[in-house]
């Protein structure tokens, strides 16, 4: 413990010394670490960040369901479902292959331009749709890995009780699959949250654009630091929450029965 503390102090001390001794340090410090500006800028940028929060909350809720659906479609066995599986594969290949920013640009600019009756023309709407499309492809692969990690004997046991294919999936296979993929699922969700900044290419004044506007006004990068802090601030609680979920599940299964 003492060694750990000492080595940590020495390491970061040396790092801080080197960085602050660099020739451009004073200018760097003035550009990124203006604390009074930080406090002043925070409320405005945090308000813009609410747009990002809205986008990722909606997108995550939708992706949880659509990705599961896609993974299940791709796991359907037998020759009858070949076209379904093929479609699912094409979808995944396509939306994992195209850069997210391109999907956002194409849908966000293209769909409103169609001026179709009943088709929303909000950039935020289409940006959210784009993120859903892309992340459905990623997350469905995570789910699929989970589904395939559940041993076939579990399905056999469920089917031998007379459960239908769907009931076995719903009550036996998926609950185990989802528990196993919670960490990588969270990984993708953090990625999605960060990718809401890509919506800025459509001109929506969300967190990144707001920080950029502020930066352009007084040529100070502290506004970007505010944006960065906000992203980190929402990621950390999510990570700890997931750790807690996993630990709780493990406790329940191994350290004694807690009736629910």
């Amino acid at each position: 413990m003492a060694i750990a503390v000492a080595s940590t102090l020495v390491f970061f001390g040396a790092l801080a010394f080197l960085v602050t001794r660099s020739p451009g340090w004073d200018r760097f410090k003035a550009y990124f670490f203006d604390w009074s500006l930080y406090r002043e800028s925070f409320p405005e940028i945090a308000e813009a960040f609410l747009i990002n929060v809205k986008i990722f909350l909606i997108a995550e809720a939708v992706v949880l369901v659509t990705a599961l659906g896609l993974a299940v479609l791709r796991s359907l066995p037998g020759p009858v479902f070949v076209p379904v599986r093929a479609l699912a594969i094409v979808y995944t290949d396509l939306f994992r292959g195209v850069p997210t920013i391109l999907v956002i640009l194409m849908l966000g600019v293209g769909m409103p331009a169609l001026q179709l009756e009943g088709v929303p023309d909000s950039e935020i709407f289409w940006a959210t749709v784009s993120l859903v499309l892309v992340y459905t492809a990623y997350v469905s692969e995570v789910y699929r890995a989970g589904i395939e990690s559940v041993h076939p004997s579990q399905d056999a046991a469920a089917r031998s009780l007379g459960l239908s294919r769907f009931q076995s999936l719903r009550h036996v296979v998926l609950p185990q699959a989802v528990r196993r993929v919670i960490p990588p699922l969270l990984n993708d969700f953090i990625g999605l949250q960060k990718d809401t900044a890509l919506v800025s290419v459509l001109g929506v004044v969300e967190v990144l654009n707001q920080a950029g506007i502020n930066e352009a006004a007084d040529f100070n990068g502290t506004h970007y630091l505010v944006a960065a802090t906000l992203f980190v601030a929402i990621t950390i609680p999510l990570a700890r929450f997931t750790d807690w979920l996993i630990a709780r599940d493990r406790r329940r299964r191994q350290a004694g029965g807690v009736p629910t």
């Binding site: 004997s153 579990q154 056999a156 046991a157 469920a158 031998s160 009780l161 007379g162 185990q176 299964r253």
Partner: peptide, 16 residues
């Protein structure tokens, strides 16, 4: 299947 019970060598209980 619901009328035929089977018990497996490896139990195959549902761990969750």
């Amino acid at each position: 299947r619901s009328g035929i019970g089977i018990v497996f060598q490896a139990f195959n209980l549902f761990p969750h």
